[in-house]
Amino acid sequence: SIQFDEGPVETSQSVLWIQAETDFADVRSAPFTGRLTPERYRAMDWRSRFDADLLGFAGTFTWAEDPPTCTWHHRLALTPRQWPDTSRYEWLNADNFLEHGTCEDDEGDSRSNPSRNRHPFVEHWHRLHSGPAQVWRLDRVEQQGQALRVDNWAVVVHQWNNSPIADPPGEDTWRAFSATAWEYRKGSWEILFGTEASLGTPPQWTPLDLDDPLCPWRLERSTPAFHGPELN
């Protein structure tokens, strides 16, 4: 769940986040229907853009214990990150914790009222599994990707055609981006949700491809998960 500005708690969005010790991948179901285009994105308010920005992203992760903070460094994402993705965390028990963060937007006049552009939020996360996690990388001139797999869950984020993250985002960039949450059920990998519903482009790679010796993905490390797969 997520709560903005101490308002109502929202529970309609599904999220699968796999966190290893220094790497992560995160994909979220779209809380809106229909195709996401650059024109539609630019017309969105700050709250809708928050959801669009985080439909899928992956990268590296750092943390500190005092105070307890986490920072996610986005390597692959649908849109460029304008501000550091840093939050405080609070463990409730062994499998549940709260993430306290701030969303900044470009609406209003931040010079006359700096707090107007900052929206505090709280996310409630539940751990499904504690690892170990496999971290896979795809590093080619025209293809970049990061995938994390743990137990029966996987998140695969990739872009192709050498399309860098643009600001403002362009149609060509989004057509060459994919982030998908997968679950292994009854002998096969099945899609839970992903960016195909919003961007119209199916994933080019699946978790099954990672085990193919001819696949260009490289297993970078297999380590105990820091949080394991999480559901919001």
Results as ranks from 00 to 15, higher is better:
A154C: 14
W125Y: 15
Q204S: 13
D151K: 08
R137Y: 01
P38Q: 13
E230Y: 11
L76R: 05
R218W: 05
T206C: 10
D167C: 01
W174A: 06
R149T: 15
A181N: 06
A77V: 01
W91P: 02
A25G: 06
M44K: 00
H74R: 09
R42D: 14
D109P: 03
T223K: 12
Q13L: 12
L214M: 09
P67K: 10
T180L: 07
D209Y: 15
S12L: 12
S188A: 15
R118L: 04
R75P: 00
A166Y: 05
W72Q: 02
Q82L: 04
R175S: 10
P68G: 06
P120I: 00
L219S: 10
W160A: 02
E99C: 00
P169I: 15
D172H: 09
A181L: 02
Q134P: 07
F4D: 02
W83L: 06
W205R: 06
P202T: 15
T173L: 05
N96V: 15
A176Y: 03
W153N: 13
D66C: 04
E10H: 07
L128R: 13
L210E: 13
S163H: 02
D26Q: 06
T33W: 01
L138G: 02
S110I: 07
D139Y: 02
C103P: 00
Q204I: 12
H100D: 03
L54K: 04
D85E: 08
H126E: 09
T71Q: 11
D106G: 08
T11G: 05
H100C: 08
K186H: 09
W17R: 07
G187T: 14
V9Q: 06
W153V: 13
D5L: 10
R185V: 09
R149H: 15
N152A: 15
T195R: 14
R111M: 04
V156N: 06
D85H: 07
T71W: 00
G56S: 05
G108N: 04
T22L: 05
E104W: 14
T37H: 12
A25D: 03
R75N: 05
G170F: 02
H158C: 04
L55E: 07
R75Q: 08
W63I: 02
D212I: 08
E104S: 15
E196S: 15
A77H: 01
T33G: 11
P224Y: 08
Q204H: 13
L219I: 13
D45S: 02
V141K: 04
T11A: 11
D151N: 14
E183L: 06
T60D: 11
A52F: 04
Q143I: 08
P68Q: 10
A133R: 11
W174S: 03
S188G: 09
N117M: 00
P67V: 07
A181C: 01
L128H: 09
D151E: 14
P229W: 15
Q159D: 10
V150D: 15
L76Y: 09
D85P: 01
P207E: 08
V27Q: 04
T173K: 07
P114R: 10
S48R: 05
F193W: 12
W182A: 01
G56H: 07
A43C: 04
L36C: 08
V141W: 04
L214Y: 07
T206E: 09
D211W: 13
I18P: 12
P120K: 03
